[in-house]
């Protein structure tokens, strides 16, 4: 009788571990899919960042800023006589 019970118990445990394997496998799969999605998102963001950097670089080209400052904002470089040196 006890032998049968033991056998049944072991059989049940095997069955439970089998279920656990299936569950773990499934969860791994979900995590891997999430990882791949994040990697793709990272690549997309990095691509967007380089494009933004390029756009910023183009807008902030020194020649363009100088032309705007001189022509649109009427700015000039201060002359020596307009400078005040402060000794600390």
């Amino acid at each position: 009788m006890t032998r049968l019970a033991l056998l049944a118990l072991l059989g049940a445990l095997v069955f439970l571990s089998a279920l656990q394997v299936v569950t773990t496998r499934y969860e791994t799969r979900l995590l891997v899919m999430a990882l791949q999605a994040l990697k793709t998102q990272r690549d997309d963001l990095e691509r967007e960042w380089t494009q933004l950097l390029l756009e910023q670089g183009t807008w902030s080209t020194h020649g363009r800023v100088e032309a705007l400052a001189r022509n649109k904002l009427n700015m000039t470089v201060p002359r020596a006589s307009e400078l005040k040196h402060i000794r600390s």
């Binding site: 990697k39 990095e46 691509r47 380089t50 494009q51 950097l53 390029l54």
Partner: peptide, 24 residues
Amino acid sequence: VVQTEAHRGMITDRNDEPLAISTP
């Protein structure tokens, strides 16, 4: 087979201002 991206490194000046950027 899945490829991960590897684009060309950026060239910057001494203040990390970009001088050469790779864009897709």
